[in-house]
Design a protein around this nucleic acid. Structure first.
Lengths: 197, 197
DNA sequence: TCGTGACGCGAGTTATCACTCGCATTCAAC
DNA sequence: GTTGAATGCGAGTGATAACTCGCGTCACGA
Protein backbone atom coordinates (compact mmCIF):
# COMPACT_ATOMS: atom_id res chain seq x y z
CA UNK A 1 0.00 0.00 0.00
CA UNK A 2 1.46 3.26 -1.10
CA UNK A 3 -0.84 5.33 1.09
CA UNK A 4 -4.06 4.50 2.88
CA UNK A 5 -7.40 5.72 1.55
CA UNK A 6 -8.95 8.22 3.93
CA UNK A 7 -12.16 9.37 2.38
CA UNK A 8 -15.08 7.13 1.56
CA UNK A 9 -14.76 7.45 -2.20
CA UNK A 10 -11.14 6.32 -2.18
CA UNK A 11 -11.98 3.33 -0.02
CA UNK A 12 -14.67 2.45 -2.54
CA UNK A 13 -12.17 2.76 -5.30
CA UNK A 14 -9.76 0.36 -3.65
CA UNK A 15 -12.60 -2.09 -3.25
CA UNK A 16 -13.55 -1.73 -6.89
CA UNK A 17 -9.96 -2.32 -7.94
CA UNK A 18 -9.66 -5.50 -5.92
CA UNK A 19 -12.97 -6.73 -7.28
CA UNK A 20 -11.94 -5.90 -10.81
CA UNK A 21 -8.66 -7.69 -10.26
CA UNK A 22 -10.58 -10.80 -9.35
CA UNK A 23 -12.78 -10.46 -12.41
CA UNK A 24 -9.90 -9.95 -14.78
CA UNK A 25 -8.06 -12.87 -13.28
CA UNK A 26 -11.04 -15.14 -13.66
CA UNK A 27 -12.06 -13.93 -17.09
CA UNK A 28 -8.71 -13.54 -18.78
CA UNK A 29 -6.20 -15.54 -16.79
CA UNK A 30 -2.87 -14.72 -15.29
CA UNK A 31 -1.02 -13.80 -18.46
CA UNK A 32 -3.60 -11.16 -19.33
CA UNK A 33 -3.69 -9.73 -15.83
CA UNK A 34 -2.40 -6.22 -16.54
CA UNK A 35 -2.78 -3.05 -14.56
CA UNK A 36 -4.38 -1.25 -17.48
CA UNK A 37 -6.94 -3.99 -17.86
CA UNK A 38 -7.72 -4.04 -14.16
CA UNK A 39 -8.08 -0.28 -14.11
CA UNK A 40 -10.43 -0.39 -17.08
CA UNK A 41 -12.52 -3.13 -15.52
CA UNK A 42 -12.74 -1.12 -12.32
CA UNK A 43 -13.75 2.03 -14.21
CA UNK A 44 -10.69 3.77 -12.86
CA UNK A 45 -7.66 5.35 -14.43
CA UNK A 46 -4.30 3.59 -14.30
CA UNK A 47 -2.90 6.52 -12.40
CA UNK A 48 -5.46 6.23 -9.64
CA UNK A 49 -4.60 2.60 -9.24
CA UNK A 50 -1.03 3.43 -8.36
CA UNK A 51 -2.01 5.79 -5.59
CA UNK A 52 -2.87 2.90 -3.33
CA UNK A 53 -1.05 -0.08 -4.78
CA UNK A 54 2.72 0.01 -5.22
CA UNK A 55 2.70 -2.33 -8.19
CA UNK A 56 0.78 -4.93 -10.10
CA UNK A 57 1.75 -7.77 -7.80
CA UNK A 58 0.22 -6.00 -4.81
CA UNK A 59 -3.22 -6.14 -6.38
CA UNK A 60 -2.83 -9.80 -7.18
CA UNK A 61 -1.66 -10.49 -3.66
CA UNK A 62 -4.76 -8.93 -2.14
CA UNK A 63 -7.01 -10.97 -4.41
CA UNK A 64 -5.25 -14.20 -3.50
CA UNK A 65 -5.04 -13.27 0.14
CA UNK A 66 -8.74 -12.71 0.33
CA UNK A 67 -9.58 -16.00 -1.28
CA UNK A 68 -7.47 -18.11 1.02
CA UNK A 69 -8.64 -16.14 4.02
CA UNK A 70 -12.22 -17.04 3.20
CA UNK A 71 -11.33 -20.70 2.93
CA UNK A 72 -9.33 -20.64 6.14
CA UNK A 73 -12.14 -18.87 7.94
CA UNK A 74 -14.66 -21.52 7.00
CA UNK A 75 -12.46 -24.43 7.93
CA UNK A 76 -11.33 -22.86 11.17
CA UNK A 77 -14.91 -22.13 12.17
CA UNK A 78 -15.90 -25.74 11.69
CA UNK A 79 -12.84 -26.95 13.47
CA UNK A 80 -13.39 -24.69 16.44
CA UNK A 81 -16.88 -26.06 16.93
CA UNK A 82 -15.71 -29.62 17.22
CA UNK A 83 -12.57 -29.24 19.22
CA UNK A 84 -11.94 -32.04 21.66
CA UNK A 85 -13.82 -34.91 20.10
CA UNK A 86 -11.47 -36.78 17.86
CA UNK A 87 -13.17 -39.45 15.81
CA UNK A 88 -14.61 -40.37 12.44
CA UNK A 89 -17.42 -37.83 12.73
CA UNK A 90 -15.01 -35.05 13.45
CA UNK A 91 -12.78 -36.00 10.54
CA UNK A 92 -15.79 -36.14 8.29
CA UNK A 93 -17.11 -32.77 9.37
CA UNK A 94 -13.76 -31.10 8.96
CA UNK A 95 -13.31 -32.58 5.51
CA UNK A 96 -16.84 -31.52 4.70
CA UNK A 97 -16.08 -27.96 5.71
CA UNK A 98 -12.94 -27.94 3.60
CA UNK A 99 -14.66 -29.32 0.53
CA UNK A 100 -17.51 -26.89 1.04
CA UNK A 101 -15.15 -23.96 1.31
CA UNK A 102 -13.40 -24.97 -1.88
CA UNK A 103 -16.68 -25.54 -3.66
CA UNK A 104 -17.97 -22.12 -2.66
CA UNK A 105 -16.10 -20.30 -5.41
CA UNK A 106 -14.82 -22.88 -7.87
CA UNK A 107 -14.10 -20.32 -10.55
CA UNK A 108 -11.64 -18.43 -8.42
CA UNK A 109 -10.29 -21.69 -7.06
CA UNK A 110 -9.52 -22.90 -10.54
CA UNK A 111 -7.55 -19.85 -11.51
CA UNK A 112 -5.89 -19.49 -8.13
CA UNK A 113 -4.90 -23.12 -7.81
CA UNK A 114 -4.36 -24.04 -11.42
CA UNK A 115 -3.28 -21.07 -13.40
CA UNK A 116 -1.36 -18.92 -11.00
CA UNK A 117 2.34 -19.37 -10.50
CA UNK A 118 2.08 -21.25 -7.25
CA UNK A 119 4.77 -19.21 -5.63
CA UNK A 120 2.23 -16.46 -5.26
CA UNK A 121 -0.17 -18.32 -2.99
CA UNK A 122 2.44 -20.51 -1.41
CA UNK A 123 2.68 -18.52 1.78
CA UNK A 124 -1.04 -18.14 2.17
CA UNK A 125 -1.75 -21.79 1.57
CA UNK A 126 1.14 -22.86 3.76
CA UNK A 127 -0.31 -20.76 6.56
CA UNK A 128 -3.66 -22.49 6.23
CA UNK A 129 -1.96 -25.86 6.25
CA UNK A 130 0.15 -25.05 9.26
CA UNK A 131 -2.82 -23.79 11.20
CA UNK A 132 -4.80 -26.98 10.63
CA UNK A 133 -1.75 -29.17 11.07
CA UNK A 134 -0.89 -27.75 14.46
CA UNK A 135 -4.40 -28.22 15.65
CA UNK A 136 -4.37 -31.78 14.38
CA UNK A 137 -1.08 -32.42 16.11
CA UNK A 138 -2.42 -31.52 19.54
CA UNK A 139 -5.56 -33.52 18.90
CA UNK A 140 -3.52 -36.56 17.95
CA UNK A 141 -1.20 -36.17 20.91
CA UNK A 142 -4.18 -36.24 23.25
CA UNK A 143 -5.80 -39.39 21.95
CA UNK A 144 -5.50 -42.57 24.04
CA UNK A 145 -3.51 -44.71 21.63
CA UNK A 146 -1.06 -41.91 20.95
CA UNK A 147 1.87 -44.12 21.91
CA UNK A 148 1.68 -45.91 18.60
CA UNK A 149 4.15 -45.56 15.80
CA UNK A 150 3.58 -42.34 13.91
CA UNK A 151 4.40 -39.38 16.08
CA UNK A 152 1.57 -36.83 16.30
CA UNK A 153 3.47 -34.26 14.29
CA UNK A 154 4.25 -36.66 11.48
CA UNK A 155 0.79 -38.18 11.48
CA UNK A 156 -0.74 -34.71 11.29
CA UNK A 157 1.50 -33.82 8.38
CA UNK A 158 0.44 -36.92 6.48
CA UNK A 159 -3.25 -36.62 7.24
CA UNK A 160 -3.62 -32.92 6.53
CA UNK A 161 -1.69 -33.10 3.30
CA UNK A 162 -3.58 -36.13 2.04
CA UNK A 163 -7.02 -34.78 2.86
CA UNK A 164 -6.25 -31.33 1.53
CA UNK A 165 -5.06 -32.56 -1.83
CA UNK A 166 -7.85 -35.06 -2.16
CA UNK A 167 -10.38 -32.30 -1.57
CA UNK A 168 -8.63 -29.98 -3.98
CA UNK A 169 -8.43 -32.46 -6.79
CA UNK A 170 -11.98 -33.62 -6.26
CA UNK A 171 -13.37 -30.12 -6.54
CA UNK A 172 -11.20 -29.24 -9.52
CA UNK A 173 -11.49 -32.47 -11.48
CA UNK A 174 -14.97 -33.56 -10.39
CA UNK A 175 -14.23 -37.23 -11.06
CA UNK A 176 -17.53 -38.75 -12.13
CA UNK A 177 -16.84 -42.03 -10.35
CA UNK A 178 -16.65 -40.34 -6.95
CA UNK A 179 -19.65 -38.68 -5.39
CA UNK A 180 -19.30 -36.07 -2.71
CA UNK A 181 -20.46 -38.43 0.02
CA UNK A 182 -18.15 -41.10 -1.22
CA UNK A 183 -15.24 -38.70 -1.14
CA UNK A 184 -15.91 -37.95 2.51
CA UNK A 185 -16.27 -41.66 3.25
CA UNK A 186 -12.95 -42.39 1.63
CA UNK A 187 -11.26 -39.61 3.54
CA UNK A 188 -12.58 -40.97 6.81
CA UNK A 189 -11.42 -44.46 5.86
CA UNK A 190 -8.03 -43.16 4.82
CA UNK A 191 -7.44 -41.24 8.03
CA UNK A 192 -8.96 -43.90 10.27
CA UNK A 193 -7.11 -46.74 8.61
CA UNK A 194 -3.82 -44.92 8.77
CA UNK A 195 -4.06 -43.92 12.40
CA UNK A 196 -4.95 -47.44 13.51
CA UNK A 197 -2.51 -49.21 11.21
CA UNK B 1 7.77 -27.43 -34.65
CA UNK B 2 7.87 -25.17 -37.62
CA UNK B 3 10.19 -27.43 -39.58
CA UNK B 4 12.40 -30.29 -38.55
CA UNK B 5 16.15 -29.86 -38.32
CA UNK B 6 17.92 -31.95 -40.91
CA UNK B 7 21.59 -31.24 -40.55
CA UNK B 8 23.61 -32.01 -37.46
CA UNK B 9 24.27 -28.38 -36.61
CA UNK B 10 20.60 -27.49 -36.57
CA UNK B 11 19.81 -30.48 -34.36
CA UNK B 12 22.49 -29.23 -32.01
CA UNK B 13 20.94 -25.82 -32.04
CA UNK B 14 17.54 -27.16 -31.11
CA UNK B 15 19.15 -29.03 -28.24
CA UNK B 16 20.96 -25.93 -27.08
CA UNK B 17 17.74 -23.96 -27.20
CA UNK B 18 15.86 -26.48 -25.08
CA UNK B 19 18.73 -26.63 -22.64
CA UNK B 20 18.89 -22.86 -22.46
CA UNK B 21 15.15 -22.75 -21.94
CA UNK B 22 15.57 -24.98 -18.94
CA UNK B 23 18.37 -22.82 -17.60
CA UNK B 24 16.47 -19.59 -18.03
CA UNK B 25 13.42 -21.07 -16.41
CA UNK B 26 15.40 -22.27 -13.41
CA UNK B 27 17.54 -19.17 -13.07
CA UNK B 28 15.01 -16.44 -13.77
CA UNK B 29 11.59 -17.94 -13.32
CA UNK B 30 8.53 -18.01 -15.47
CA UNK B 31 7.91 -14.31 -15.72
CA UNK B 32 11.39 -13.70 -17.10
CA UNK B 33 11.18 -16.57 -19.57
CA UNK B 34 11.43 -14.61 -22.82
CA UNK B 35 12.47 -15.74 -26.25
CA UNK B 36 15.23 -13.16 -26.42
CA UNK B 37 16.65 -14.35 -23.13
CA UNK B 38 16.49 -17.97 -24.14
CA UNK B 39 18.15 -17.20 -27.44
CA UNK B 40 20.91 -15.27 -25.70
CA UNK B 41 21.46 -18.08 -23.20
CA UNK B 42 21.65 -20.57 -26.04
CA UNK B 43 24.12 -18.40 -27.93
CA UNK B 44 21.67 -18.21 -30.80
CA UNK B 45 19.86 -15.38 -32.51
CA UNK B 46 16.16 -14.85 -31.88
CA UNK B 47 15.50 -15.42 -35.53
CA UNK B 48 17.11 -18.84 -35.53
CA UNK B 49 14.94 -19.83 -32.63
CA UNK B 50 11.82 -19.26 -34.65
CA UNK B 51 12.95 -21.53 -37.44
CA UNK B 52 12.18 -24.60 -35.38
CA UNK B 53 9.80 -23.40 -32.70
CA UNK B 54 6.50 -21.75 -33.68
CA UNK B 55 6.35 -19.60 -30.57
CA UNK B 56 7.57 -19.13 -27.05
CA UNK B 57 5.16 -21.62 -25.56
CA UNK B 58 6.51 -24.40 -27.74
CA UNK B 59 9.93 -24.12 -26.14
CA UNK B 60 8.44 -24.17 -22.69
CA UNK B 61 6.33 -27.18 -23.58
CA UNK B 62 9.34 -29.19 -24.66
CA UNK B 63 11.15 -28.37 -21.43
CA UNK B 64 8.19 -29.40 -19.31
CA UNK B 65 7.47 -32.43 -21.43
CA UNK B 66 10.98 -33.70 -21.03
CA UNK B 67 10.91 -33.32 -17.28
CA UNK B 68 7.70 -35.23 -16.73
CA UNK B 69 8.73 -37.87 -19.23
CA UNK B 70 11.83 -38.56 -17.18
CA UNK B 71 9.76 -38.91 -14.02
CA UNK B 72 7.20 -41.12 -15.71
CA UNK B 73 9.92 -43.28 -17.18
CA UNK B 74 11.48 -43.94 -13.81
CA UNK B 75 8.23 -44.75 -12.08
CA UNK B 76 6.96 -46.91 -14.91
CA UNK B 77 10.20 -48.87 -14.98
CA UNK B 78 9.94 -49.65 -11.30
CA UNK B 79 6.30 -50.52 -11.60
CA UNK B 80 6.86 -52.84 -14.54
CA UNK B 81 9.40 -54.84 -12.56
CA UNK B 82 7.03 -55.58 -9.73
CA UNK B 83 3.84 -56.21 -11.59
CA UNK B 84 1.65 -58.86 -10.05
CA UNK B 85 2.73 -58.82 -6.44
CA UNK B 86 0.55 -56.42 -4.57
CA UNK B 87 1.67 -55.80 -1.03
CA UNK B 88 3.51 -53.48 1.33
CA UNK B 89 6.85 -54.08 -0.34
CA UNK B 90 5.46 -53.22 -3.72
CA UNK B 91 3.85 -50.05 -2.43
CA UNK B 92 7.07 -49.07 -0.78
CA UNK B 93 9.16 -49.69 -3.85
CA UNK B 94 6.84 -47.75 -6.08
CA UNK B 95 6.76 -44.84 -3.69
CA UNK B 96 10.51 -45.05 -3.45
CA UNK B 97 10.81 -44.83 -7.21
CA UNK B 98 8.51 -41.83 -7.32
CA UNK B 99 10.35 -39.98 -4.57
CA UNK B 100 13.64 -40.84 -6.22
CA UNK B 101 12.45 -39.54 -9.57
CA UNK B 102 11.31 -36.29 -8.00
CA UNK B 103 14.53 -35.95 -6.04
CA UNK B 104 16.62 -36.42 -9.16
CA UNK B 105 16.24 -32.84 -10.32
CA UNK B 106 14.77 -30.80 -7.48
CA UNK B 107 15.68 -27.49 -9.06
CA UNK B 108 13.60 -28.12 -12.12
CA UNK B 109 10.91 -29.71 -10.01
CA UNK B 110 10.61 -26.59 -7.93
CA UNK B 111 10.14 -24.31 -10.88
CA UNK B 112 7.93 -26.74 -12.76
CA UNK B 113 5.70 -27.58 -9.84
CA UNK B 114 5.75 -24.34 -7.92
CA UNK B 115 6.29 -21.45 -10.22
CA UNK B 116 4.75 -22.48 -13.48
CA UNK B 117 1.12 -21.80 -14.19
CA UNK B 118 -0.14 -25.29 -13.57
CA UNK B 119 -2.22 -25.29 -16.68
CA UNK B 120 0.99 -25.78 -18.62
CA UNK B 121 1.93 -29.13 -17.11
CA UNK B 122 -1.55 -30.20 -16.31
CA UNK B 123 -1.86 -32.55 -19.23
CA UNK B 124 1.52 -34.08 -18.74
CA UNK B 125 1.03 -34.66 -15.05
CA UNK B 126 -2.50 -35.91 -15.55
CA UNK B 127 -1.17 -38.43 -18.04
CA UNK B 128 1.34 -39.70 -15.52
CA UNK B 129 -1.37 -39.95 -12.89
CA UNK B 130 -3.75 -41.76 -15.16
CA UNK B 131 -1.12 -44.25 -16.23
CA UNK B 132 -0.30 -45.15 -12.64
CA UNK B 133 -3.91 -45.05 -11.57
CA UNK B 134 -5.05 -47.46 -14.23
CA UNK B 135 -2.33 -49.89 -13.32
CA UNK B 136 -3.29 -49.58 -9.67
CA UNK B 137 -6.93 -50.18 -10.53
CA UNK B 138 -6.24 -53.52 -12.18
CA UNK B 139 -3.95 -54.52 -9.34
CA UNK B 140 -6.61 -53.70 -6.78
CA UNK B 141 -9.31 -55.47 -8.74
CA UNK B 142 -7.24 -58.65 -8.73
CA UNK B 143 -6.55 -58.81 -5.02
CA UNK B 144 -8.48 -61.38 -2.94
CA UNK B 145 -10.39 -58.99 -0.67
CA UNK B 146 -11.47 -56.86 -3.60
CA UNK B 147 -15.12 -57.27 -2.68
CA UNK B 148 -14.73 -54.77 0.13
CA UNK B 149 -16.14 -51.28 0.14
CA UNK B 150 -13.99 -48.99 -1.95
CA UNK B 151 -14.29 -49.95 -5.59
CA UNK B 152 -10.92 -50.52 -7.26
CA UNK B 153 -11.24 -47.41 -9.37
CA UNK B 154 -12.05 -45.16 -6.44
CA UNK B 155 -9.45 -46.74 -4.21
CA UNK B 156 -6.82 -46.26 -6.89
CA UNK B 157 -7.80 -42.62 -7.26
CA UNK B 158 -7.43 -42.03 -3.55
CA UNK B 159 -4.18 -43.91 -3.15
CA UNK B 160 -2.39 -42.50 -6.17
CA UNK B 161 -3.38 -38.95 -5.39
CA UNK B 162 -2.42 -39.19 -1.74
CA UNK B 163 0.96 -40.80 -2.37
CA UNK B 164 1.80 -38.49 -5.23
CA UNK B 165 1.13 -35.34 -3.27
CA UNK B 166 2.87 -36.61 -0.18
CA UNK B 167 5.95 -37.34 -2.25
CA UNK B 168 5.78 -33.98 -3.98
CA UNK B 169 5.46 -31.96 -0.80
CA UNK B 170 8.12 -33.96 0.96
CA UNK B 171 10.67 -33.32 -1.78
CA UNK B 172 9.76 -29.66 -2.10
CA UNK B 173 9.39 -28.78 1.57
CA UNK B 174 11.88 -31.23 3.06
CA UNK B 175 10.09 -31.27 6.43
CA UNK B 176 12.83 -31.79 8.99
CA UNK B 177 10.65 -33.99 11.17
CA UNK B 178 10.20 -36.58 8.44
CA UNK B 179 13.10 -38.64 7.16
CA UNK B 180 13.02 -40.31 3.79
CA UNK B 181 12.57 -43.76 5.28
CA UNK B 182 9.86 -42.50 7.56
CA UNK B 183 8.05 -40.98 4.62
CA UNK B 184 8.01 -44.32 2.85
CA UNK B 185 6.86 -46.04 6.06
CA UNK B 186 3.99 -43.61 6.43
CA UNK B 187 2.98 -44.08 2.84
CA UNK B 188 2.86 -47.83 3.28
CA UNK B 189 0.84 -47.42 6.47
CA UNK B 190 -1.51 -44.99 4.79
CA UNK B 191 -2.18 -47.22 1.82
CA UNK B 192 -2.29 -50.43 3.84
CA UNK B 193 -4.53 -49.02 6.51
CA UNK B 194 -6.90 -47.55 3.99
CA UNK B 195 -7.26 -50.67 1.90
CA UNK B 196 -7.97 -52.85 4.92
CA UNK B 197 -10.21 -50.36 6.69
C1' DT C 1 -17.88 30.46 2.01
C1' DC C 2 -13.41 29.51 1.24
C1' DG C 3 -9.03 27.31 1.08
C1' DT C 4 -6.28 23.32 1.41
C1' DG C 5 -5.14 18.77 0.93
C1' DA C 6 -6.95 14.44 -0.63
C1' DC C 7 -8.41 12.58 -4.73
C1' DG C 8 -8.82 11.14 -9.58
C1' DC C 9 -7.60 11.50 -14.29
C1' DG C 10 -5.45 9.89 -18.77
C1' DA C 11 -2.07 11.00 -22.06
C1' DG C 12 2.58 10.09 -22.03
C1' DT C 13 7.28 7.72 -21.08
C1' DT C 14 10.27 4.09 -21.23
C1' DA C 15 11.11 -0.58 -21.58
C1' DT C 16 10.49 -5.00 -23.15
C1' DC C 17 8.13 -8.26 -25.48
C1' DA C 18 7.14 -11.78 -29.33
C1' DC C 19 8.16 -12.26 -33.65
C1' DT C 20 9.87 -11.10 -38.84
C1' DC C 21 12.75 -10.43 -42.80
C1' DG C 22 16.42 -9.64 -45.89
C1' DC C 23 20.88 -11.21 -46.27
C1' DA C 24 25.22 -13.81 -45.39
C1' DT C 25 27.10 -18.36 -44.63
C1' DT C 26 27.52 -23.37 -44.74
C1' DC C 27 26.52 -28.01 -46.20
C1' DA C 28 25.85 -31.76 -49.37
C1' DA C 29 24.75 -33.69 -53.74
C1' DC C 30 26.44 -33.98 -58.34
C1' DG D 1 33.99 -26.92 -58.12
C1' DT D 2 29.33 -25.45 -58.59
C1' DT D 3 24.87 -24.88 -57.10
C1' DG D 4 20.77 -24.74 -54.52
C1' DA D 5 18.83 -25.77 -50.31
C1' DA D 6 19.37 -25.54 -45.45
C1' DT D 7 20.94 -22.77 -41.94
C1' DG D 8 21.94 -18.80 -39.05
C1' DC D 9 22.01 -13.97 -38.16
C1' DG D 10 20.48 -9.59 -35.72
C1' DA D 11 18.60 -5.17 -36.52
C1' DG D 12 14.06 -3.96 -36.84
C1' DT D 13 8.65 -3.73 -36.18
C1' DG D 14 4.51 -3.12 -33.94
C1' DA D 15 2.24 -3.99 -29.84
C1' DT D 16 1.75 -3.73 -25.14
C1' DA D 17 3.39 -3.56 -20.68
C1' DA D 18 4.17 -1.08 -16.07
C1' DC D 19 4.26 2.99 -14.22
C1' DT D 20 4.51 8.58 -13.87
C1' DC D 21 3.15 13.33 -13.80
C1' DG D 22 0.92 17.58 -14.21
C1' DC D 23 -3.44 19.27 -13.84
C1' DG D 24 -8.27 19.64 -12.76
C1' DT D 25 -11.91 18.28 -9.19
C1' DC D 26 -13.90 17.37 -4.92
C1' DA D 27 -14.65 16.97 0.15
C1' DC D 28 -14.23 18.85 4.57
C1' DG D 29 -12.74 21.79 8.46
C1' DA D 30 -12.86 26.64 9.82
Amino acid sequence: MRKSPQQARSRDMVERIVGAGREVLVASGYDAFSTNRVAAAAGVSPGSLYQYFPDKAAILDVVIDRYWSEVAENVAASLADRIGDLGPAMVRDTADALVGALEADPVVLRVVAEELPIGRNRDRRAALERRVRELATTLLAARPESSSRPSPAVAAWVVVLAVENLALRWVLDQPPAVSRDQLLDEMVALVGGYLSA
